[in-house]
Design a protein around this nucleic acid. Structure first.
Length: 552
RNA sequence: UGCCUGAUGGUGUAACGGUAGCACAACUGUUUUUGGUGCAGUUUGUCUUGGUUCGAAUCCAGGUCAGGCAACCA
């Protein structure tokens, strides 16, 4: 294997660090805040961090960045762990920023003792005002000049609960004229009386992100701390903290977050979709959440493949949704068992079929020679797709119409003789004759037909419910579209068929099996599906050359 | 009108001073008992202006455009 795969910029950095002996091995971390469900954008970060560790023989911590008790919940911790595991990754250590609250408090005292942190009594508005603007230096205030002893005492009192929420904050004493707003005496600690999902009411002061993240990285000896672009301005502060404290020199690197066409990644907006009922839940199969994609039928393999293909860089990007679809089709094509399901049924009667019924065998997966076959019952009364019949066929129509011949998949070639309509003028019954010497696998008829249809024997058919999903939004770049993003919700993102007819093989199929419904798409049993009421979610359609042809 | 990022086909991503490649998308053709799959092929690109160099996507200078930054959020 001398295949040369080019390295992304982070892999180059790591390769160099290892070569120069800056570190003996690497340790990365995936640091979600447990305030929501993971989505495909997180998957990119997960695959990056865990993938890097695998590639370079290192390891990865799962760390919950739980420094804001008002938004965080154990429910989210559990779902995040489940999602990471489902994606196929294992962390060496499960960590929590909240485990470091004591240590962080000690770090803060160290800064106060060094004279580089102070307690400020100003209100949020005053602090904002005193910070100045990007083009104008801030002014600061008298609290900056408090003595070390006074700061120590006040910070202790903050911790002891002597002051009301918001009454005081601990700030770093760096200066107020930096062109980087994040460096203008940033807040380190705030008073917040809220019950933390892990530490309960032990604390009433909590560290800010900027006084927790880099410190947590250092405590865990993280070598490469990888985050998204919006944290670039925080990096000087990240480094300031490590330097002032003299702790392990973790390094921060930034990459561009994932954007995808026809969907959104913002946790806030996703939450809105759920709370306002535009989707049923966080794991609604239309959601770009890991749990939604899992329910829809995406495989972990396909998501990992997708994350591998999109690459890692610093430039803003918007990935075609069709790449994700390609990845899942490619995987499912290889592993999904084929089944026949008729979604918009019309009756087909084979007038010269004398037997009551017979069992025909059909391959489970033509891509897999080991895939085996299954038995499919055939009789003289079948359901076929309404779309597969045309009263007056057009030129390139390879399906059924008066006097036209097609093959029934894994069965016989038939010829349409006539059809009947109901009072409303809809085709109700199609009558055909079959060629008994055209049986699949033993065809001696010499007939050649262009179309092959899927079908289900009417008296053996099993009723199934189908959820067919389409993109959640109707515009490519939802985040940058004008106005409220909700205006662009695709009203037809879910199409439910309450009665479709499927093969009886479903009765013996395990719920976690992945299927391709012939000529329809890939389907996966929904979480609410039962043996008595089978419900399938369409993961993705098949490519449809005919649909394109029709549009012309 | 300050600072920080970035700019390669429709979308991503490579090329580390020496043939602009790969994937998706789109479009042909071909194979096919899935209008699926497979196979073969086509179209489309270095933001701009200068400079350095035998040679620039790459180095330098200026410009343009895009995104980010002033939460007691992360």
């Amino acid at each position: 294997m001398s295949e040369e795969k080019s390295l992304n910029f982070i892999e180059e950095i790591i390769t160099n660090d290892l070569a120069e002996g800056k570190c003996k091995s690497i340790l990365t971390r995936f640091p979600p805040e447990p305030n929501g469900y993971l989505h495909i954008g997180h998957a990119k970060s997960i695959c990056l961090n865990f993938g890097l560790a695998t590639r370079f023989g290192g390891a990865t911590n799962l760390r919950f960045d739980d420094t804001n008790p008002t938004t965080e919940e154990t429910e989210y911790v559990d779902s995040i762990k489940a999602d990471v595991q489902w994606l196929g990754f294992n962390w060496v250590k499960e960590c929590y920023a909240s485990d470091y609250f004591d240590q962080l408090y000690q770090y803060a005292i160290q800064l106060i003792e060094k004279g580089v942190a102070y307690v400020d009594d100003s209100s949020p508005a005053e602090i904002a005002l005193q910070k100045g603007t990007p083009t104008m230096a801030g002014t600061g205030n008298d609290f900056r000049n408090r003595s070390i002893a006074e700061n120590l005492a006040l910070f202790n009192e903050m911790k002891e609960g002597k002051y009301a929420d918001g009454a005081k904050v601990l700030r770093a004493k760096i200066g107020l004229s930096s062109p980087n707003m994040h460096m203008r005496d940033p807040l380190l600690y705030r008073i917040k009386r809220a019950t933390h999902h892990r530490t309960g009411d032990t604390w009433c002061i909590y560290p800010m992100y900027d006084f927790a993240h880099g410190q947590s990285d250092a405590i865990e000896n993280i070598t490469h701390s990888i985050c998204t672009l919006e944290f670039i301005p925080h990096r000087p502060l990240y480094e300031w903290g490590i330097e002032q404290l003299g702790i392990f020199p973790s390094k921060q690197y930034e990459f561009a977050r994932l954007n995808m066409t026809y969907t959104i990644m913002s946790k806030r907006k996703l939450l809105q979709l759920v709370t306002e009922g535009h989707v049923s839940s966080w794991d609604d199969p239309r959601m770009p959440t890991i749990s939604g994609m899992r329910r829809r039928g995406y495989t972990p393999e396909s998501i990992r493949d997708f994350c591998e293909r999109i690459g890692i860089a610093k430039r803003e990007n918007i990935i075609d949704f069709s790449l994700l679809e390609f990845c899942v089709r490619e995987h499912l094509n290889k592993i999904a068992q084929r089944r026949m399901v008729v979604t918009d049924p019309v009756k087909l009667i084979i007038t010269n079929y004398a037997q009551a019924e017979e069992m025909l065998s059909s391959e489970n997966n033509p891509e897999d020679t080991e895939g085996g076959v299954r038995q499919v019952p055939f009789s003289n009364e079948l359901w076929i797709e309404r779309d597969d019949f045309m009263e007056e066929p057009t030129k390139k129509y390879f399906r059924l119409g008066p006097d036209l011949m097609v093959r029934l998949k894994s069965a016989y070639i038939i010829k349409c003789e006539r059809f009947e309509k109901d009072a409303a003028g809809n085709v109700q019954t199609i009558y055909a004759t079959y060629f008994d010497n055209s049986k699949s696998g033993a065809d001696t008829s010499g007939l050649h037909v262009k179309g092959t249809l899927h079908w289900v024997s009417a008296k053996h058919a099993v009723p199934v419910v189908l959820n067919e999903y389409d993109r959640l939004f109707s515009v490519e770049d939802v985040a940058n579209a004008e106005g409220d993003f909700k205006e662009y919700i695709n009203p037809n993102s879910l199409n439910t068929t309450t009665i479709a007819w499927g093969e009886p093989a479903f009765l013996n199929d395990a719920p976690e099996m992945r299927f391709q419904f012939l000529r329809k798409g890939y389907f996966y049993q929904d979480t609410i599906s039962t043996k008595d009421k089978l419900v399938f979610n369409r993961t993705v359609t098949l490519k449809d050359a005919w649909a394109k042809e029709q549009k012309k």
